[in-house]
């Protein structure tokens, strides 16, 4: 863990001093990170691709661990079959831990939300290899949901309401809804009581159970709860879909193998596409090309909400009104 603390203190040091040189340095670092990831040293020895190395796909704890296997084990099996390596699912319950594990090389690939990706990239320069193509779309949206029988008709009606968020580090369950509320003239933490439930499902369920008045969730979760007593009050602008991020220092061959497995082969082989359609609905649409710049809007969003520290502040600091 010491490396993480060191990294955090370095990053904090840079921003705290707020010197021009440091800012330039951060900018350079960012550029280098975005476009020349291999400048960063590998945190672990990379096993040769396709020689039965033991690899791990980390997934941010969107759900209960059991559900993670239910949803993602088929993708892991597919990677084992197609890459020649042995893949396993690495389930972590914590967004931060996923970041640390990928940066340290414990994970070879991680499936995470855009904001977490940006923090990871900030931390160790990890870059995406593909992004989700859920229901044929490389973007997704955040939905703000209320109970079907509630009086709310517009976002501005939510003034004074109790709002349920997922994790403070969640893009679609926190950042985007906060921006939407802000755009509607409601200042989270002042005109709105914020509550954090850690997961999209729990946030939505809090509204169902009446603990909260409204919630912001990822669209596939929101659509599920649209059948469970909630209705959609507002949809966000498109958000670049969830990336699969390769650990820093991964070889071009490894990236190529992943690209082939996740995009080229399904494009060529209808059997594989058909197989993917049997996977969880998040993954059933396959994968789409991605570049680091796709997430610049999210980066801007973070900047708007939290300033530059948004990418490095601990989760607790990102909460609105400081409550939870």
């Amino acid at each position: 863990m010491s490396w993480w603390n060191n990294l955090q203190s370095i990053l904090s040091g840079w921003t705290d001093r707020r010197t021009g040189a440091r800012r330039l340095g951060v900018g350079v670092c960012l550029l280098v990170t975005l476009f020349f990831p291999r400048v960063f040293p590998a945190f672990s020895e990379e096993a040769p691709v396709g020689l039965s190395a033991h690899r791990h796909l980390g997934v941010v704890g969107f759900y209960n661990p059991r559900l993670m296997y239910v949803k993602y084990q088929q993708l892991v099996d597919y990677l084992t079959e197609t890459t020649g390596d042995r893949w396993d699912l690495a389930v972590t319950m914590d967004y931060e831990e996923t970041v640390k594990s990928l940066c340290s090389g414990k994970l070879d690939l991680a499936y995470l939300g855009p904001f977490t990706y940006l923090r990871m990239h900030e931390a160790c320069g990890a870059t995406p290899v593909v992004r989700l193509n859920t229901k044929g779309s490389a973007i997704y949206r955040s939905l703000i949901m209320v109970r079907q029988d509630s009086p709310y008709r517009t976002l501005s009606d939510l003034r004074g309401a109790v709002f349920a968020f997922g994790s403070p580090l969640s893009t679609s369950s926190h950042l985007v809804p906060r921006l939407m509320l802000r755009d509607a003239g409601i200042k989270p933490g002042e005109g709105l009581t914020c509550q954090y439930f850690g997961h999209h499902d729990r946030a939505a369920r809090a509204v169902v159970m009446g603990t909260a008045d409204a919630c912001g969730v990822r669209d596939i979760v929101g659509e599920r709860f649209a059948k469970r007593g909630l209705r959609i009050l507002a949809r966000s602008d498109p958000i670049p879909n969830f990336p699969l991020v390769v650990r820093p220092g991964a070889s071009p061959e490894f990236r190529k193998v992943l690209m082939q497995a996740l995009m080229e082969r399904p494009e060529r082989d209808p059997e594989i596409r058909k197989r993917m359609q049997g996977w969880d609905e998040e993954l059933a649409g396959g994968f789409a090309p991605v570049s680091a710049s796709d997430y610049l809007p999210v980066r801007r969003l973070v900047g708007l909400l939290f300033g530059k520290r948004g990418l490095v502040d601990p989760a607790e600091l990102l909460k609105c009104g400081g409550n939870g």
Binding site: G61, F62, Y63, N64, P65, R66, L67, V70, M93, G198, H199, H200, D201, R202
Partner: peptide, 19 residues
């Protein structure tokens, strides 16, 4: 068990019971 772990903040129920 799911309710207990949830209650204790150990493992989130998040979808398990419904599943």
């Amino acid at each position: 068990d799911a309710l207990m772990y949830e209650d204790l903040g150990l493992v989130s129920e998040s979808g398990l019971i419904e599943n």
